[in-house]
Computed example of a mutant assay.
Amino acid sequence: MTQKNEIYVSADGTLRWQGKTYPCALGKGGVVEDKTEGDGATPTGRYRLKRVLYRADKMTRPECALNVTEINATDGWCDDPTHPAYNTQVTLPFAASHEELRRTDNIYDIIVVMSHNDNPPVPYKGSAVFFHLARDGFTPTQGCVAITEEAMRDILKTVTDDTYMVISL
């Protein structure tokens, strides 16, 4: 049964939300039940949409009920499973392995942070599994769920702080 506040993502690359279906890109490692750091796979599970980050220097603020914050040049995300800040947002420069959130491509122009492996983060169980913008042609991600900017803005207008993304095989 479909729940009102659940976004459904299937391993076939479709995302369903409030009666609409959107194409999405998933991890190059497929969809897996047992996520490990660096496997390039999208993890199955039910994840709360927590907050939105966006590039104010490139676009307008997304309309959304979630907390929305601008991405700055000093924003990063720790992907070093041996570091205490693993799978959390960090300030750059940062000595341990990390991703820069202010990228030169457009895929992180809007990022929805989800509750994957965050309470608390378990080392090697995956970091930076985001809901973000897709590359042209929906090429695979490193483990995230990605859609077009138009679809993202459409979805964000209607999510609430109790919306979950359900990823299944």
Results as ranks from 00 to 15, higher is better:
D39C: 13
D39Q: 09
G40N: 12
G40K: 11
A41V: 02
T42R: 03
T42W: 03
P43S: 06
G45W: 06
G45T: 03
G45Y: 06
R46M: 10
Y47I: 04
K50P: 00
V52H: 06
V52A: 02
Y54D: 02
R55D: 09
R55K: 05
R55F: 01
A56C: 11
K58Q: 13
T60R: 13
R61F: 01
R61Q: 15
P62W: 08
E63Q: 14
E63V: 14
C64K: 09
C64M: 09
C64P: 12
A65V: 02
N67C: 04
N67M: 05
V68Q: 09
V68D: 05
E70I: 04
E70H: 12
I71R: 12
I71D: 06
A73S: 15
T74P: 00
G76H: 07
W77F: 14
W77M: 07
C78V: 07
D80V: 06
D80H: 05
T82C: 00
T82W: 00
P84E: 14
Y86I: 04
N87L: 11
T88R: 15
V90H: 03
T91E: 08
L92N: 11
F94P: 00
F94S: 02
F94H: 05
A96H: 05
A96Q: 05
S97I: 02
E99F: 03
E100M: 14
T104H: 07
D105Y: 10
N106W: 09
I107R: 13
